[in-house]
Design a protein around this nucleic acid. Structure first.
Length: 465
RNA sequence: GGCGACGUACCCAAGUGGCUAAGGGAGCGGUCUGCAAAAUCGUUAUUCACCGGUUCGAAUCCGGUCGUCGCCUCCA
């Protein structure tokens, strides 16, 4: 089966065909670095990580660009409040963002362009829109995109903009524009902006929000590229406006496939910074919640489904991960002969894994096939022993699926001297058949998050996640 | 007001016209174990919000009802 994605533009699952054979160029909307990101934001980045990893699994070379928005209204407001320059102000949040990506096992994109490093590119694009007469200036030095000059406006969001309620929300009117639906390409400097401005050929001011994505995507991916992603709330107006700017500016088609990720909910409501009902990743990590378990929760529900975040799910995820890891750990081969049966099982389930993910990244189905595979191997093991070749084949299979899932690797950790001493003492107690003492030590270690497992090969330990 | 999504077991969640309705968590029963834990095996929905229709056949298509949520404004 061919790889296909649900394309917001066509509202259909379209077969995926890259522009250039074997290579995928994608742009993923990134963070606005004015605060720490919450796990709703990370749901989108995890979805993009899945997309990226799966494209690589399929053998594509991937070039991913993720923007860092380091100038916007909120950044200016908050930076000016603290008296810092916006660069100083955003630096720590940007660093935190990358730390969080690492914690969640999100693979790095090829390029993370910052908006403030690309003012000339944006100015050039705005100039060309002015030259074409699609953009206009207002008295306050701002520049707007004239939506009425771009008839295709609304094709992504499927909104009939002309029919939209006018004046339902009359803007605070800091800027004047011809029509309410026109949007800012460039915002002329005003007092509130303080030290934040650029002196450019198109005047003194700063870029509008949407223009950075148009300018930076074309710089790093070309005017026409394969995939553009973001959260569903970006469909309108952000992506609609990007299309308008880019296609009006270049006269070429902008993007082939638009993929949008649904929201994360908390107790049934959308989680967002403005609603105040959000969890920051680092708050959860500070509570000793395992990062991989959070990754699993965010990953394991299909990206176009709303996902209600609960701690029950985190717990269930931790157990699922433990089961996968324990299975891998339990693989021991006894003889060297190859058994065709294991190869057959693996081939079947690896095919399933790929076929389900091919269908618009059906991760739940793919995970289902992984667990079914494990189950079938375990059943086989009940009455047969695995050979070394079997074990090698299974490990290869697990590594292959984990190149997409990235949950199997156990973080490096070691026992403290004290913990090791306790384990030794328990061994001693067991040898003396002092079960009461052995059980007491086992309970004590458990309360420290260490689980002991007594097996015929001896006692092993692992950290609870 | 306009546009759209969703409602599957105790919880989560696949499946979108036809084999016994995936899989995970939880519960229960067995194996293992000094006992546990972990692991593992088995088991848990005649039924897919409700009502009607199309069809030889529907969780899956169509119409309606109820409920939940999102977008139309900064947002992943």
């Amino acid at each position: 089966m061919a790889l296909r994605f649900y394309n917001t533009m066509t509202r259909n699952k379209d077969d995926f065909q890259p522009i250039q054979t074997g290579k995928v160029r994608m742009y993923t909307c990134g963070p606005t670095v004015y605060n720490y990101a919450h796990i709703g934001n990370f749901r989108a980045y995890i979805f993009e990580d899945l997309l990226r990893r799966y494209l690589k699994f399929k053998g594509y070379q991937v070039v991913q660009v993720m923007n860092i928005t380091d100038v916007d209204d909120k950044i200016i407001r908050d930076a000016n409040k603290t008296g810092k320059s916006i660069r100083e102000f955003t630096k720590s949040y940007q660093d935190a963002f990358f730390e969080d990506l690492d914690a969640l096992g999100i693979e790095r994109a090829e390029v993370y362009p910052a908006a403030t490093d690309h003012i000339p590119e944006m100015v050039n694009l705005i100039k060309s829109l002015l030259d074409k007469g699609i953009a206009y200036r207002t008295d306050d030095g701002s520049i707007y995109f004239r939506v009425s000059d771009y008839p295709a406006y609304g094709k992504l969001a499927h909104l009939n903009i002309a029919e939209m309620q006018r004046g339902a929300r009359v803007q605070s009117d800091e800027y004047e524009k011809e029509e309410i639906r026109d949007f800012a390409l460039w915002k002329g400097w005003k007092d509130d902006d303080g030290p934040v401005y650029w002196e450019t050929e198109i005047g003194k001011g700063r870029p509008g929000w949407h223009i950075e994505c148009s300018a930076m995507s074309s710089k790093y991916l070309g005017k026409h590229f394969d995939i553009h992603t973001g959260g569903v709330d970006n469909i309108f107006p952000h992506h609609e406006n990007e299309i308008a700017q880019s296609e009006a500016g270049t006269g070429e088609k902008f993007v082939n496939y638009w993929l949008h990720c649904e929201h994360l909910m908390v107790e049934g409501d959308k989680m967002s910074k403005s609603a105040g009902n959000f969890y920051r990743l680092r708050e959860l990590l500070d509570k000793e919640i395992d990062a991989t378990a959070i990754r699993y929760v965010l990953l394991s529900t299909h990206y176009r489904q709303k996902l209600n975040f609960t701690f029950d799910k985190v717990e269930a995820a931790a157990k699922s991960i433990t089961r996968l890891r324990d299975f891998k750990k339990s693989l021991i081969g006894n003889t060297i002969n190859d058994s065709q049966q294991i190869r057959k099982i693996i081939d079947k389930y690896l095919n399933d894994f790929e076929a389900t993910l091919d269908d618009d990244l059906n991760i739940s189905g793919a995970l289902g096939s992984v667990f079914s595979c494990i189950h079938e191997i375990n059943t086989f093991r009940e009455t047969n022993s695995l050979t070394e070749d079997d074990v090698q084949a299974i490990v290869e299979y697990l590594n292959r699926i984990d190149s997409v899932l990235n949950v199997l690797e156990v973080p490096e950790n070691q026992l403290s001297d004290e913990e090791q001493t306790l384990i030794d003492a328990r061994q001693q107690a067991r040898a003396e058949r002092n079960w009461a003492e052995a059980d007491r030590i086992r309970d004590e270690l458990l309360s420290r998050g260490i689980i002991l497992e007594d097996t015929p090969q001896g006692t092993s330990w692992k950290r609870k996640i």
